[in-house]
Design a protein around this nucleic acid. Structure first.
Lengths: 348, 348
DNA sequence: TTGAAAGCGTTACCAG
DNA sequence: CTGGTAACGCTTTCAA
């Protein structure tokens, strides 16, 4: 076994199959791609040869020749503990259903590296591209536009989309959950998480958190609930740590706070834990709402009131849109708003 | 903009660049791949043309010609709420550092679809392949072996590895955490999660859970702690739900249980929540231990005693091994045990 | 229904 | 240091 692995076998080519089946290569190609165009007898002979030789088509050659790669590239910040994991799942699924594959790149939160990744992705001549970031360098936008590759931006509804977009309004979502807290009867509502990083950079996640915060502030203003209760947050550490630390700081400054909206469920877990440590009754004394409806938020877990985002559907729709465009189908809406849903549970 | 996107521009080719710079295509190629082999003046002229024309190399053609794809394929079950997310991050990172790209496929827990995905992955002629599943069909193993593509199996140390492996011993990990519970003084230790699905299929996650359970049972046997306290579990619902439901069932059958080892941190969250609902003091009356050290397990969150697995490192090392092999470097160990670490926190 | 020939855009190989 | 020519393995196009 060892030797076989160290000395890569030569791949079986279409030529080999053709020879074995006594036909030309193009016939083999047809059997594989459009079997109905080949006489049954021939088809079976070829199929047998394919099986016997263990032929695995070379998509690299195929792509070069046909000028379609059947590849879609997706760029995300990170996957670990990220809201994008389910979106990537959805995308992978919808692509697979149509015989396409997924190339994944991680930007690690830098839009400079996003630009570099876009370039390398384009070098594979992808049939489409999914971007989870909402901000792009001018150069990146130019490359994308110049390439003519269909692009879908997800998890946001940009004011100036590059091409297509699938997501929801972060501002509206922030507004909705804050309004829900208001309707329950809360009047001294704080906001935890989402802000500017200590290094001055604002990361993607933070940017969206900021949008949700705008929604939060809009509700406060609309109901005359006073100044926003938000602590400036150096955003190092995990989301959970930030939730715990920021809630502590917020309560120190505004001890009478009766509800907090956390920019993500992870942040909410930190806040919840901090409240428990302090012996604060939730939701009696302090209501806590999260964002994302992660697995841990459910009834059997945290029982967290939160906002559910259709992450999987966002990915699946992004894939569908891309492939529909490729097929040249009447392109539906370029901007698809999949909405969100406030989920009321025990913490608020 | 719309029109430009609907009518894809023709790509600038190396030929175009060559023409513009007054050289041959091969010289352009050299400027891009081995600049030191080209006279500075020429190099700069070419580089200028590349920039002016916005040339993006075609890796599809390059791969076909050079017979190396600079692509590594990874197959995972799912990403959402999965322990593999950080491993994929680590892999993507180490590949990117060496100019390679990642193709991702999701198997959705079926080894039949794993086989199909392996075939499509191989059709891209990847330079390497990462498998997170521990079980493969004979056909899959044959394809892999026949292709000569380097393979790394991760998150496990298979008895009969296909090629290379990076991971840790699930049995030893289960043994270690159970032993820790024993050392703390617990004698009536239960196990929650990990088993056989209702549909009779055993999924990947379940298989590894079963290995951890073997470790758990070994400790019970070694110390004469009586029969294993495990409830047969129909494994539908989320991990959190299973944790809650199975803990309830376990306590019904063995009310005097004083500690439980949960097969993952998500399961542990469910168990923790169920204990809280029942007013059971943790860890006083019942100690709870998890597995994985997810973000939520930390001090600021659940404060969960658990087992930390180096998921990111597993991915990063897998990438490194693959690329080292490709370079033909003296292949180090084919099996890399990255170990694990018991993390003691508040719940046990 | 099948095939021959001509690419697809690059890189390997060998010359100069 | 630079270039010509021939692959790479497939699909397109045009004929038969």
């Amino acid at each position: 076994m060892t030797d076989a692995l160290l000395a890569p076998r030569k791949w079986v080519t279409m030529q080999d199959v053709a020879l074995a089946a006594g036909v030309s290569t193009i016939t083999v190609s047809r059997v594989l791609r459009t079997p109905e165009k080949v006489k049954v007898a021939t088809r079976e002979r070829v199929a047998a040869a394919v099986r016997d030789l263990g032929y695995v088509p070379d998509q690299v050659a195929g792509s070069l020749s046909s000028r379609e790669s059947r590849l879609v590239a997706a760029l995300v910040s990170t996957l670990a503990g990220s809201v994008f994991a389910s979106t990537v799942d959805g995308l992978a699924q919808s692509l697979r259903d149509e015989g396409h594959q997924l190339m994944l790149g991680t930007t690690e939160y830098s839009s400079a590296s996003e630009q570099a990744l876009i370039a390398t992705a384009l070098s594979r001549r992808p049939d489409g591209m999914v971007l989870t970031s909402g901000e792009h360098t001018p150069a990146a936008r130019a490359m994308l536009a110049g390439s003519g590759v269909p692009v879908v931006e997800v998890w946001e509804l940009p004011d100036d989309p590059i091409d297509m977009a699938v997501g929801f309004s972060n501002i509206e979502a922030g507004r909705a959950i804050t309004e829900a807290l208001y309707q329950i009867g809360h009047r001294r509502i704080g906001f935890v998480g989402g802000g500017i990083r200590r290094d001055g950079q604002s990361s993607e996640g933070d940017r969206r958190g900021r949008l949700r915060r705008e929604g939060y502030e809009a509700v406060l203003a609309a109901h005359g609930l006073g100044e926003p209760r938000v602590v400036p947050n150096p955003t190092d550490g995990s989301m959970v740590e930030r939730g715990a630390r920021d809630l502590a700081a917020l309560l120190e400054r505004w001890p009478d706070t009766d509800a907090v909206f956390c920019s993500s469920d992870s942040v909410a877990l930190g806040a919840l834990s901090e409240a428990r440590r302090r012996g604060i009754d939730v939701p009696g004394t302090l209501a806590v709402a999260g964002f994302g409806d992660f697995e841990m938020a459910g009834e059997s877990g945290l029982g967290l009131t939160t906002v559910r985002i259709p992450g999987y559907a966002i990915g699946a729709e992004a894939g569908r849109l891309l492939l529909a465009r490729k097929r040249g189908e009447a392109t539906g809406p370029r901007i698809l708003d999949l909405g969100f849903e406030v989920v009321r549970r025990a913490t608020a």
